[in-house]
Amino acid sequence: MTRGRFLFILAVIVVLIGAAMYLSPSTLENETVAASMLATTLGVATPLTLGMLAGLFCERSGVVNIAIEGMMLTAAFVGYTVGAYTQSLILGLLAAMASGGMMALLHAWLSVTFKVDQIISGTVINILAFGLTGYFNDLLLRRRDVDIQSAGLTPTIESLADRPVIGFFFKPIDALSDVSVIGPIFNQKPIAWMAIILVFVTHYVLFYTTWGLRTRAVGEHPHAADTVGINVFKMRYANVVIGGLIAGLGGAYFTLESTPQFEPLLTSGRGFIALAALIFGGWTPFGGWAAALLFGAASAFQSNAQQFGVPISAHIIGMIPYLLTIIVVAGVVGRAFPPAAIGQPYQKE
């Protein structure tokens, strides 16, 4: 991740927050607007961050992942359905992650074992996810009267702070979220916190552990890894599936944390934006996180602008993240080098 890109990201976020403050009605304090912008940014960036990390594991091991969208959509559906039927948040969350992992396993099976073009394999997963979630949504949710909201399943920091063990971590956060102006920033829900923690964990795993060294080697020069006795196929399978589990967590954010309902195509391209964040972040956890925050800020601006009744069509403002993505991948702001062996199925003679 180049310095130019970091500065670019910082500048855009500052401009967006500034614009929100400028557009806000005079009855609102500027600090309040900025804090709410930051809070929304962190929230909206959660699935993007998780999707980015999902792609990171996958692509660092040399497998292109454009199936983040499909994995998240599947997980959003499965997590919601299991949560609604069992009325258990934890089971829903685990099911979501497992379903993301299953889709990833399919991706690995197609692209690593059968050496299908990785982009086609990813597209197949996306289409399969659209089809399956549409069909079973109709079968399992729309036609029956199941609901998740009634059981009050979406967790809050307060509720978590009261629980044993994990309460230890969430108590200080809960305390922070009570502070007046900056409170909303810390008042994030658990998956949002997990996403941030995972950014640090991923950085550590990738650059300071055996696993990370091998993953990077397999993504850069699989044959070299093979000649020192590293099983390229196993490493790729494992990393793709780890990515799938994280994408599953990202999918769970939509239906178990953000808005407790499922509708077809609900991820609406955020898996692809996560991928763009990964590319913009130069395949590094912190770079990708910064890029995810940038897209999050753009979305936050959109929702704030709508709230303030800005006289620009919501459709137009809604286009900002997509437009930003194009600008970003066009390499207008610096260029990053992807893992060298990305996209090439490993062929052992």
Binding site: T210, A224, V228, A340
Partner: peptide
């Protein structure tokens, strides 16, 4: 069979890595 973006030590360790104090 060397990974260009890694250091000599990393390349040589690859496959026989050891961890110490979590790193």
């Amino acid at each position: 069979q060397l990974v260009p973006v890694m250091t000599v030590a990393e390349n040589i360790a690859l496959g026989n890595e050891r961890m110490r104090r979590g790193r």
